[in-house]
């Protein structure tokens, strides 16, 4: 049952990850892309947007945890949905800058991990979104997919924003 419901989301998610990876490898990095106003450059802008995204996914983890409990307050599902949307929204310009300006990098462990996780996270997020409306999924499916998204985003933040803040300092 679960597999029958999930094969299409899994296929589409894999297509998303592959597309990102192939594009990041084939597209010649330009070094520039549209940027966000109010920052000294694209790197601090990305570091801060990714940090907002990290806050979003932490709220995701906690609110999901509460939703699976006995007596979740009625506003928790809305918090879960909206923190997720915000995290996804702010992650997009960061990812586009990575894809367009920098491309898939493999010159050290940090950039390899970041590139792989970046391709992975949007694929598994696609699977999660497409799986959500399905009825009759096994109980472990959504927590597992959500866990992948959370772990990947934390990994992405550690290999980019944390590296940036500890290397170049915390500034806008």
């Amino acid at each position: 049952m679960t597999l029958r419901l999930l094969w299409l989301p899994l296929l589409l998610g894999a297509a998303v990850s592959l597309t990102l990876g192939v594009y990041a490898n084939l597209h010649s990095p330009t070094g520039i892309a549209v940027s966000v106003a109010g920052f000294s450059g694209p790197q601090p802008a990305k570091a801060w947007l990714a940090t907002i995204c990290l806050l979003g996914v932490i709220i995701q983890l906690i609110s999901a945890f509460i939703m699976y409990g006995e007596s979740a307050p009625s506003w928790i599902p809305a918090l879960h949905r909206w923190s997720g949307r915000v995290a996804f929204l702010v992650a997009i310009p960061v990812a586009i800058h990575c894809l367009f300006a920098l491309g898939f990098s493999s010159f050290d462990f940090r950039t390899v991990m970041h590139s792989l996780l970046g391709c992975f996270v949007f694929g598994v997020f696609t699977v999660k979104m497409l799986a959500l409306p399905k009825h009759g999924l096994a109980g472990w499916v959504l927590p597992l997919l959500g866990g992948f998204v959370f772990t990947a985003f934390v990994g992405l933040w550690l290999t980019s924003s944390l590296w940036y803040f500890t290397t170049f300092g915390v500034h806008a």
């Binding site: 949307r85 929204l89 997009i92 979104m129």
Partner: peptide, 19 residues
């Protein structure tokens, strides 16, 4: 959830075009 994905895709394509 599907709308979320669609909006995200539109946003991403818009940013790529602008870039």
């Amino acid at each position: 959830p599907i709308l979320t994905l669609v909006y995200g895709l539109v946003f991403a394509v818009g940013l790529l075009t602008a870039s």
